[in-house]
Design a protein around this nucleic acid. Structure first.
Lengths: 334, 334
DNA sequence: TTGTATGCGTTATCAT
DNA sequence: ATGATAACGCATACAA
């Protein structure tokens, strides 16, 4: 079943069928009707592979992420997929894990699949440490446009949509300082581009208040609750006092709440806690968690919007930044 | 840059190049070397669209789900995508929402994209009520194999992988009854195939202990915490006593924990609570939540395994069932 | 407005 | 073992 069968049935040429199929002008109403009827009679569907071959595109975007089961990334993927579909694009999903060789491999794979563009979701693709090698991304950008969500690379054909994480953490830390806190703990679980911005926001806020950031108050935790809990218990055991915790992720903040429970501390009276990402978790704890909303939906829409414009040849800024908002719940006094 | 360029550079015909490309026999070592070298020199990548046209497949599987940001579904998608890739297949993701027309539309879309098979993830595609119309799925199965994860339709070319939800809820309810509970509340948030199995498991367990299920003790809650909380508060206000809560989802169980907090009830001493899905949430609450693990990973792997076998023409059972396990934490006494 | 002819880049068949 | 050529099904430039 192909376009020839339809043209035969309708008594017109394949060119006319094709024109009808693609909504092109210069088709008489009569011819159009005949073609439409033939298509219906034969239950014809155009062969997308043949179309792809001729047009050299399948209207497909590759989505890469380290782990699509991560709440934050899962949300981003959800919004991105929906938005792409609204624009007539399919999404090929690629979960790479954290291994750089796998990332490289999958990026190459997507290019060989001739997707029209690639969206790299999450901060796991760009790091700030010197050993970071994102050369494979700039290399890929020679072939097709790449959009980073929560990561930034200065490069031709690479675009970034970012949440202003620095400002978000800077602001919340400042608020805590203004409210009289002196000993604030910062817990983080990532040294990615976005992770470092948050950490710097914390440090800069302290410095703006004349406080020198102390390493004993800034702890890297692998992404789980128990690590955060353990870290705070260790600080307590060593005799390091603290009266507030800012976390780079809600999960770590949950650990802080568990710490408060274990020490019978009143939250927020004796310990104020702030999480990040405004995930479901923030509504599950007791008390409910004040959290920074990193605006995943807006970020996702902006990413798709950017890519669509690039594909149309429209002009777009290489970097767009969106502000986070603070969702006040019950682990803070303000 | 195409296969002709390579053949020219290597000084052989395109047939030979194609043979090398696809690891086919009847190529001399010498010719193979020349081709490989030419491919390397030119940095040639075969055009996948042309290959798709000739072979009539792009080695791609469609994954449909109602909402990829849902924790449970996000996990399933993660495992499925990884497993498909191991088998050399790409995944096209489709988030349909709950509207049946959208589901129908996207299923048609995937078929028109000529994917090799479709995996329907989650129980949102099959319902047990009479108004349910899954005719579009059986219709689609005429075109390509379909695998349901947590749903079942008896039909040719439709396969199901299921968690034994009935048994899981039956068992946990029985345990609670054995431990002396008489007034158990069941909270659920879905009337899907899987949702009904859970509900029936609850009812059957009661009946096995000579208790007639009371509607006042079985409540449908839309999927959020506050609804569960409100429901339990309402029961309390009306004077309906209860000493245990079984929930069809961890989120609802979180609502039950919040209820206990609001009434200053000791958990599990005064109220035992069991959740479902063993999500992160179960580790975030205080006390941590006993939950039924529905084995998403195993389910996902089984789904891919089934589909791969079908595509190979191997024989497969139409339904495979996997048993849930109970993850004991601190909201239950046993 | 309509139709013819060609190209897209593979894989596969069949002859050599 | 190798090569010439057809077939896959569409879009489109160009001719009519």
């Amino acid at each position: 079943m192909n376009i020839y069968d339809v043209s035969k049935k309708a008594g017109v040429s394949i060119a006319t069928v094709s024109r009808v199929l693609n909504g092109k002008p210069n088709v008489s109403a009569k011819a159009k009707d005949k073609v439409l009827q033939a298509i219906k009679d034969l239950d014809y569907t155009p062969n997308i592979f043949a179309r792809g071959l001729g047009l050299n595109t399948m209207k497909t975007i590759g989505i890469m992420c380290s782990d699509s089961s991560d709440t934050y990334l899962a949300n981003a993927i959800y919004y991105i997929e929906q938005e792409l579909r609204k624009n007539g694009y399919d999404s090929i999903l690629c979960c790479t894990g954290r291994d750089i060789d796998t990332k490289r491999k999958y990026l190459d794979l997507l290019i060989s699949k001739r997707v029209d563009g690639i969206i790299l979701v999450g901060s796991q693709f760009v790091f700030n440490d010197p050993s970071d090698d994102y050369g494979y991304i700039t290399e890929a950008a020679k072939e097709l446009p790449i959009v980073l969500v929560n990561g930034a690379i200065e490069n031709d054909n690479i675009y970034s949509v970012l949440c202003d994480d620095h400002k978000a953490v800077y602001d919340i830390t400042s608020t805590l300082l203004e409210n009289g806190h002196k000993k604030i703990v910062y817990l983080y679980n990532s040294t990615s581009f976005s992770g470092m911005k948050k950490l710097n926001g914390f440090q800069d806020a302290l410095q703006a208040y004349g406080i020198t950031p102390q390493p004993e108050y800034m702890h890297f935790c692998s992404k789980d609750i128990t690590c955060a809990l353990q870290t705070l218990q260790d600080m307590d055991a060593v005799g390091l006092p603290f009266d507030a915790v800012v976390a780079s992720d809600d999960l770590l903040a949950v650990g802080a709440i568990k710490y408060a429970h274990s020490k019978q501390l009143l939250v927020p009276e004796q310990l104020e806690i702030v999480g990040y990402n405004n995930s479901v978790l923030s509504k599950c704890t007791e008390p409910e968690l004040t959290s920074i909303d990193s605006q995943v939906e807006q970020l996702s829409l902006a990413a798709v919007d950017t890519l669509m414009k690039v594909l149309c040849g429209d002009y777009v800024t290489h970097t767009s930044t969106i502000s986070a908002t603070i969702i006040k719940r019950n682990t803070t006094k303000f």
